[in-house]
Design a protein around this nucleic acid. Structure first.
Lengths: 108, 108
DNA sequence: CTAAATTTGTCATTTATTGACAAGTTAATA
DNA sequence: TATTAACTTGTCAATAAATGACAAATTTAG
């Protein structure tokens, strides 16, 4: 899966023969805004990931990989970050786990 | 370098024998807020990365690696993302490069 | 004890994100 | 080509998040 998250949603939606309006309704969002999301002109809101998973019966862990992978990629692309950034990120995740940082409330 | 970005700044600052007030002044920010940043209670603002690089004569590319690596790690930790997220991110960066997506204005 | 350094709490302001809707374009088809 | 559903784009008020600022602790070093 190399597509952006917007392209990914569009693929899921059209594969299932849904219109923007239909999917937007499932996601509790305006069809015009869903269009922007699919076209990369708005971000998909974290808090709707669960609805998206339900709509297409997706594995939630895999969906998170797509979603956050997309976010990271956009940042890196926008700021021209070397791919070393990702290795450092991995180290730092392990570091955070090792010190068991108190963290913001998990949203899902 | 495994520390959080806040710890990293504190290390740089104390190594150079600067007080919070002194560094805060260089970064054009309140010392109380810098304290919070070092202690992971606030985010360091992207727009001050250049000032930080200047203050400590750091390589800007490496600083970005630290900064964004830290951001990604925090997200992954907070949302319990599998490390596959990072591989997907890499694929997606390459995808974005390949399609030469029009992007938000680069801030530095 | 004192003074400097640091931390914590709060809050108004600023900035960014979102929801909503109107108006426009495109695509399919009768 | 007229009609209609689907989609896109633009705008803006409302909401939410980030930031700056400052006062009031607390900690640290001498």
């Amino acid at each position: 899966m190399k597509a952006t998250f917007g392209e990914y949603i569009r693929q899921l939606r059209t594969d299932k023969g849904l219109t923007l309006t239909e999917l937007a309704s499932l996601l509790k969002l305006d069809s015009a805004n869903l269009s922007k999301i699919e076209n990369g002109k708005r971000e998909f809101d974290e808090k709707r990931l669960d609805k998206l998973a339900n709509a297409f019966d997706l594995d939630f862990e895999k969906l998170k990989v797509e979603y956050f992978g997309d976010q990271f990629a956009k940042k890196m692309y926008a700021y021209n970050c070397s791919s070393e950034t990702l290795m450092v990120a991995e180290e730092k995740v392990n570091y955070l786990k090792s010190i068991n940082v108190k963290q913001a409330e998990i949203k899902f």
